[in-house]
Computed example of a mutant assay.
Amino acid sequence: MKRKTFCVLEQGNRVGEELTRKKREFFSTEFSDFYRLNWGGKDDPDAFLSCEGLTWSEGRSLLYKEVPKNYDYYIFCDDDIVLETNDGVSVAECIRDLLVTYRPVAATFLDPLSWAFSWAEPSNLAELKLRRAFPIAGFDLQVHIFSREFAEAMFPVIYHGSGRTMWYAQWVCSELYPLKQHCYTEVTATNTRHELHSDFERPQFSEDQKVVWLFNRNVKPGQLGVPIKPEIIIRMNAERCTQSVSKETVAFSKEELEKVYDSNNKDYQNRIAVVDAKYLERIRSLDIYWKISITRLQLLGVHYRSRLRGFFSRLIRL
């Protein structure tokens, strides 16, 4: 079967959303498809899958696991994201043209209000919008595009949760192919609700800083690993976007991954889309090491110093 150019994979817990139906209409074409997961387990006529009790990263992992593997690209997005073109042309045709022209390993669409562009002044954004594409080090997970080969290596997610759970994928691409992780400006992404995924109380959930620390334990010697703070990524974005993207075709492989990350570790080897008892046992044992890790103690130190400064500032004002 001939592969289509891309599919859009959406997840959310509402039913009957107009945004979802518009996406289905926009992306059901001869070269693209649309799939949805309802993580509330609800009877959702627009959903390809419905499954309750998932974390955000399990939702994306399960979608990738279950959809057909006959696409060149997989575009993941949340259900509150609006994708639009600047000049009113078909958003599906515009995306196809961008992917076929630039052949990214990974990519996203411009959201000027995202934290990833907090470094940019209005004049910087105006200059970026004049370019069809520019390289980017990291970005909001609300829209994340994977080439077929890259998705095979990155899914299922290694450590489940929501915030930062796929920063490792952005870091891998940025380290190995810094000019093949793109941001496209002819399609914009707008977050319409800014709602948090309500998964933090689930037993399989790992907090954002913890998932970064867990991944970084297995980066190769000499590698700094995924930045624990978004400010580092923001600074990298300001520098990276001054360069030009590469249009070279790259077929990502696990052999490439080995250059920066030891994929022979048991956490990577035992990745699972939806957690089971073995995963829970493993993550609970790792939680002990996280709680006594230097990284966590340093973060706690910064937190408490900040609170003390605030306390003494209030005392002085009194």
Results as ranks from 00 to 15, higher is better:
residue 20 T to A: 13
residue 20 T to Q: 10
residue 21 R to H: 10
residue 21 R to Y: 10
residue 21 R to L: 15
residue 22 K to V: 15
residue 22 K to T: 13
residue 22 K to A: 14
residue 22 K to H: 11
residue 22 K to C: 12
residue 22 K to Q: 15
residue 23 K to Q: 10
residue 24 R to E: 12
residue 24 R to Q: 13
residue 24 R to A: 14
residue 25 E to I: 09
residue 26 F to R: 05
residue 26 F to H: 07
residue 27 F to L: 12
residue 28 S to Y: 03
residue 28 S to D: 13
residue 28 S to L: 09
residue 28 S to G: 09
residue 29 T to N: 11
residue 29 T to M: 13
residue 30 E to T: 13
residue 30 E to P: 02
residue 31 F to E: 15
residue 31 F to M: 14
residue 31 F to L: 13
residue 31 F to Q: 11
residue 32 S to H: 04
residue 32 S to R: 03
residue 32 S to N: 06
residue 33 D to G: 08
residue 33 D to W: 07
residue 33 D to M: 12
residue 34 F to C: 03
residue 34 F to R: 00
residue 35 Y to W: 08
residue 35 Y to G: 07
residue 35 Y to E: 08
residue 35 Y to P: 06
residue 35 Y to I: 10
residue 36 R to A: 08
residue 36 R to C: 11
residue 38 N to W: 01
residue 38 N to T: 05
residue 39 W to Y: 12
residue 39 W to S: 10
residue 39 W to T: 04
residue 40 G to H: 07
residue 40 G to W: 04
residue 40 G to E: 05
residue 40 G to R: 03
residue 40 G to C: 05
residue 41 G to F: 05
residue 41 G to A: 03
residue 41 G to I: 03
residue 41 G to L: 05
residue 42 K to I: 11
residue 42 K to S: 12
residue 42 K to A: 15
residue 42 K to M: 14
residue 43 D to P: 07
residue 43 D to G: 09
residue 45 P to S: 08
residue 46 D to M: 04
residue 46 D to P: 00
residue 46 D to R: 01
residue 47 A to T: 01
residue 48 F to H: 02
residue 48 F to V: 06
residue 48 F to P: 00
residue 48 F to G: 03
residue 49 L to G: 01
residue 49 L to R: 00
residue 49 L to W: 01
residue 50 S to C: 13
residue 50 S to F: 08
residue 51 C to F: 13
residue 51 C to W: 09
residue 51 C to G: 04
residue 51 C to A: 11
residue 52 E to V: 09
residue 52 E to R: 05
residue 53 G to D: 12
residue 53 G to P: 04
residue 53 G to I: 13
residue 53 G to Y: 11
residue 53 G to T: 13
residue 54 L to Q: 00
residue 55 T to D: 03
residue 55 T to F: 02
residue 55 T to S: 07
residue 56 W to T: 02
residue 56 W to P: 00
residue 56 W to D: 12
residue 56 W to E: 15
residue 56 W to H: 14
residue 57 S to I: 09
residue 57 S to Y: 08
residue 58 E to F: 04
residue 58 E to N: 02
residue 58 E to Q: 08
residue 59 G to M: 08
residue 59 G to C: 14
residue 60 R to T: 08
residue 60 R to I: 12
residue 60 R to F: 11
residue 60 R to N: 09
residue 61 S to L: 06
residue 62 L to G: 01
residue 62 L to V: 04
residue 63 L to Q: 03
residue 63 L to P: 00
residue 63 L to T: 01
residue 63 L to W: 01
residue 65 K to H: 12
residue 65 K to I: 09
residue 67 V to S: 07
residue 67 V to Y: 04
residue 68 P to I: 15
residue 69 K to F: 06
residue 69 K to Q: 09
residue 69 K to N: 05
residue 70 N to G: 10
residue 70 N to P: 03
residue 71 Y to Q: 10
residue 71 Y to P: 06
residue 71 Y to F: 14
residue 71 Y to H: 07
residue 71 Y to L: 13
residue 71 Y to D: 10
residue 72 D to E: 15
residue 72 D to R: 12
residue 72 D to Y: 12
residue 73 Y to R: 00
residue 73 Y to V: 02
residue 75 I to V: 15
residue 75 I to H: 03
residue 75 I to N: 02
residue 76 F to M: 06
residue 76 F to N: 02
residue 77 C to F: 04
residue 77 C to M: 14
residue 77 C to D: 02
residue 79 D to K: 05
residue 79 D to Q: 04
residue 79 D to G: 07
residue 79 D to P: 00
residue 80 D to N: 11
residue 80 D to T: 10
residue 80 D to V: 11
residue 80 D to Y: 08
